[in-house]
Write a protein that binds this DNA or RNA. Structure first.
Length: 255
DNA sequence: ATGACTCCCAGTGGGAGA
């Protein structure tokens, strides 16, 4: 069982790359962020023709999420129940005996800003809801673009980024709070190459210089932890012509 | 360097992302 997450930064632009990647990697479940498409423009025919079921939740210009799967998704939820949100950021579904939550966490812009306050409120609501989901579905994955670099080793220049967005104590405390619910960062269950990032700025030749952040994550519940066989970042799509600024992250489960 | 790039919606510039 292989699951993956990718912030595609516009599915309209990245659809050919996505279809290529799906064909090459053959995941069973794939969650997408920043589709930037209203629901009527979601490329369901192309994705269906390639052999995937899909559910989606989008809006114009910003945000937008989707979940693609080989098996039929059930019990689909869009956004955080009870949290009034104008932004399309969450899609959850049950695939067989797995509960999968795909999420595009708010960016937060800058500490102290209105957008940062929204990020904190959104994280509070997410934690309460995920706790609830975990009680109902012990076999759960929370995966997506977290917009949080959990530790200094997830940052190419921790001194320059200290206290900056993605690296504040408040954001990192929220990441740990999610783990305290009974989730673990699948990437850190394994030895990884140093300087492993999932995002590189488009500017400054950041990818060529490997100056990035690890902000895309796959958290797995304690019940799934014994089944996690591998977790890695696939940098290859970042080398495409017209790449997303993010790379996909994959996890493999045994059984 | 308050930049650099890319996307979107706009409409020949500007906001947002991270």
């Amino acid at each position: 069982m292989k699951l993956a997450t990718w912030n595609v930064n516009s599915l309209a632009v990245r659809l050919p790359q996505l279809l290529d990647w799906l064909a090459a990697q053959q995941p069973d479940v794939m969650v997408l962020q920043e589709t930037k498409l209203t629901d009527d423009r979601f490329p369901q025919p192309e994705i269906n023709t390639a052999g995937w079921h899909s559910v989606w939740f989008g809006q114009r210009t910003y945000n937008g999420v989707a979940l693609l799967s080989r098996s039929e998704p059930a019990d689909v939820i869009r956004n955080i129940p009870g949290f009034d949100d104008a932004q399309a950021r969450v899609i959850a579904a049950t695939l067989g005996d797995l509960r999968v939550i795909g999420a595009y966490f708010p960016n937060g812009q800058a500490p102290g800003s209105d957008k940062f306050a929204y990020k904190m409120a959104w994280l509070d609501a997410l934690e309460a809801w995920v706790a609830d989901e975990l009680r109902r579905h012990p076999r759960l994955l929370l995966m997506g673009d977290f917009n949080i670099a959990p530790e200094d080793r997830d940052v190419h220049d921790p001194v320059a980024w200290a206290g900056q967005i993605h690296c504040t104590d408040e954001e990192r405390a929220h990441f740990r709070a999610l783990c305290t619910l009974g989730l673990v960062d699948a990437f850190r269950l394994f030895e990884q190459p140093p300087k492993s990032w999932s995002w590189w700025d488009y500017r400054n030749l950041a990818f060529r210089r490997n100056q990035g952040l690890r902000i895309d994550h796959i958290l797995v519940s304690e019940a799934l932890r014994p089944q996690v066989a591998a977790c890695r970042i696939d940098k290859l799509p970042r080398k495409n012509e017209r790449p997303s600024d993010h790379a996909p992250v994959l996890v493999e489960l045994t059984g």
